[in-house]
């Protein structure tokens, strides 16, 4: 019991095994994202084995075209969830943006001004969410359930029961044709472009690091000079404006808009982000995981539709994937805990 025994010195070498740290990005890739890659490959193999046409380029165009708006909305939501908040108003904002655009366009505004106004509405709506969450201090899940109803309601006031059509065909065609010379949908290209930006911002900039810190330990982030509230406000604004942009894309793709465009999509978007490995508690997740999740859901949907499987099966598949995405990372620990308990009782 002499005092110079270095008893409290940690022997950290064996620690990395015990602790499940989120060290280098490549090590994170070994976990959830690698499973996603396998699932994606599985989905593609499965699709092509069931339908010889599945791997043709047109199908990739279709997948991109069908997933575009949901995928684009998933990106800002990824960042929002990274900070431990949630935005359930995304699909309503998409609908509101389309409604504003349609309303103004049908009232004689130029299409460009109408689109600009829709984006402004996105900024304003996002600011409402952001201020209520960050400044007033309300839980984002409650706030955005409220704005989910509010935004959709405003869209309904503006547009119901009309359907606005007659948008310039020069613009609406971009929703339904691939980029010339390729089989890439415009919305898919925009999504990929935004995903690269989101990936760089999240994984390689001070802002991205701040988001992670906020998600993991908001107080420590604040004590490190990170302007937690300001960042949250701007994230909600970003979410609003990007969803408004997705609303414009959807309106152009459909060449028409009614107040209920995209109703119920919020849960799809949330499901994709979570399936992509983003922790609902914040601080953990990668953009590549979300991109993979988008690809998997899109490919499975396309494969199942083309094989003419009942659409309900798609819901079940999404649900099961979602469940697995949270249970597996915790599965090992749960088993260990149960074993411990059994031993303790024995």
């Amino acid at each position: 019991m002499t005092s110079d025994l270095p008893t409290m010195t940690p022997v950290t070498h064996s620690h990395s095994v015990v602790e499940n740290g989120n060290g280098a990005p490549w090590r994170a890739l070994l976990r959830w994202e690698s499973a996603l890659v396998v699932v994606l490959i599985g989905a593609l193999v499965f699709g092509s084995s069931e339908s010889p046409n599945f791997l043709n380029p047109t199908n990739f165009f279709y997948i991109g075209m069908n997933m575009g708006e949901v995928a684009i909305m998933a990106l800002p939501l990824t960042l929002v969830i990274m900070t431990g908040e949630i935005d359930l108003s995304v699909a309503s904002m998409l609908g509101l943006s389309g409604a504003v655009m349609g309303y103004l366009f049908s009232n004689g505004w130029s299409i460009w001004l109408a689109m600009a106004a829709a984006l402004v509405v996105g900024v304003l709506g996002g600011a409402v969410n952001g201020l209520l969450v960050a400044k007033v201090g309300l839980p984002s899940i409650a706030v955005t359930i409220g704005t989910l109803a509010l935004f959709r309601g405003i869209a309904e006031i503006l547009l119901a029961p009309r359907t606005v059509t007659g948008f310039p065909s020069s613009l609406t065609t971009i929703g339904v044709v691939p980029i010339p010379g390729t089989q890439i949908a415009y919305s898919a290209a925009i999504f990929l472009g935004l995903a690269v930006v989101a990936g760089i911002v999240l994984h390689a900039t001070p802002l991205g690091r701040a988001l992670v810190a906020i998600g993991l330990q908001p107080e420590a982030a604040q004590f490190s000079g990170i302007r937690v509230n300001r960042i949250k406000i701007w994230l909600f604004v970003l979410s609003g404006v990007v969803c408004a942009f997705a609303g414009i894309l959807l309106t152009l793709k459909n060449a028409s808009v009614s107040y209920d465009a995209g109703t119920g999509l919020e849960l799809n978007v949330v499901a994709i982000v979570l399936f992509g490995g983003v922790s609902i508690f914040g601080g953990r997740g990668t953009v590549i995981g979300v991109v993979l999740a988008v690809a998997i859901v899109g490919a499975l949907q396309q494969a199942l539709t083309q094989m003419n499987v009942q659409p309900e099966v798609q819901n079940i598949v999404i649900g099961v994937l979602l469940l697995i995405s949270v249970v597996i990372p915790n599965g090992g620990e749960a088993i260990r805990r149960i074993r411990d308990r059994a031993r303790r009782h024995a």
Partner: peptide
Amino acid sequence: KVTLALAVTLV
């Protein structure tokens, strides 16, 4: 390995 196995099973 467990993750991958489950993923494959799922597919």
